[in-house]
Amino acid sequence: MYKNSDRFLTAFNRIEKELKSMLMKKELGFSRAVRVLQKSNAIIKQYTDDLLEFAELRNAIVHNRLDMAFVIAEPHDSVVNRIEKIEQELTQPKKVDPLFIKRVIAFQQNDPLYHILDVINHKGITKFPIYNGDDFQGLVTHKGIAKWLARRTKTNTGPLFETSIMEVLQGEKFDNYKFISTGTSVYEAMEIFREQIGNGNRLEALLITENGTSKGELLGIVTNWDIMEI
């Protein structure tokens, strides 16, 4: 049976190896590597405080060994479980594929608005990619529809629900979405939502294609609610 200190040091060493593989300067110490990489790696940014505390605990265990068979203190079970979880997240991060790969209901820009309203009513879906043939045009949301209806009822011109989706789309924010690739990690997706909020822009969805561009086949969609559930 492995002792907690053995499990802890094994996980720590694997994390350290993973950090070095991400760095140009391999000679950086563990804590310095964490501080450098947190700027570019969403998973490390998420666990920075934990990793820095693990570095202190690792030093205490290694430097205070009385001999190779005895350590001055054994880490608590919760600490060992935590570092092993983080090690797995770093070395085998959860990807948006396959978690969020699914059929996405999309519409053509000339479809009538009532097509979207019918889906909202029966399926509860509220975010819809819009295309012109194979060319992506934008993302229509239930909030955008509500704002459009509020404006349209003031003019009261023509049948509302026969209006083309493109007219509704023109009132949406042009930057309410981003495309990501199938290789994007869940933490990277979460960080994209966070960064946009920090920039004063709330994303409605991340759209998944193979290469992360609007030119690829739409394979899935991630909303901020999806991320919160994960």
Results as ranks from 00 to 15, higher is better:
M1E: 10
Y2K: 08
Y2P: 12
K3H: 14
S5V: 09
D6M: 12
R7K: 12
F8A: 13
F8D: 15
F8K: 03
F8S: 10
F12G: 12
R14A: 15
K17M: 10
K20R: 12
L23T: 13
M24Q: 08
K26V: 12
E27I: 07
G29I: 13
S31E: 07
V36T: 01
V36G: 03
L37V: 00
S40L: 09
K45V: 13
Q46Y: 05
Y47C: 08
D49H: 01
D50W: 01
L52N: 07
L52D: 11
E53T: 00
A55H: 07
A55F: 04
E56F: 00
E56I: 06
L57Q: 07
R58G: 10
R58W: 12
L66P: 03
M68V: 10
A73I: 08
E74G: 04
E74K: 00
E74V: 03
H76D: 14
H76P: 00
V79K: 03
N81Y: 06
K85V: 00
K85L: 11
E87I: 08
E89F: 12
T91H: 04
V96R: 00
K102G: 11
R103Y: 06
Q108P: 00
Y114M: 08
H115I: 00
L117I: 02
V119T: 12
I120D: 15
I120M: 15
H122L: 11
H122R: 10
G124C: 05
I125L: 09
T126C: 11
K127N: 08
K127P: 04
F128L: 02
N132C: 01
Q137L: 08
Q137Y: 07
Q137E: 15
K143Q: 10
A150P: 02
A150L: 12
T153I: 13
T153S: 09
T155P: 01
N156R: 08
T157M: 11
G158N: 09
P159M: 00
E162Q: 07
T163G: 06
T163A: 07
I165F: 08
K178C: 07
F179V: 05
I180E: 05
T182D: 11
T182G: 05
T184W: 06
V186E: 05
V186R: 02
Y187Q: 15
F193P: 12
Q196D: 15
G198N: 04
G198A: 10
N199H: 13
N199A: 13
R202S: 14
R202V: 15
E204C: 03
A205P: 04
A205F: 02
L206N: 03
L207W: 01
L207C: 06
I208K: 02
G212V: 08
K215T: 08
G216D: 14
E217V: 11
G220D: 15
D226T: 01
I227K: 04
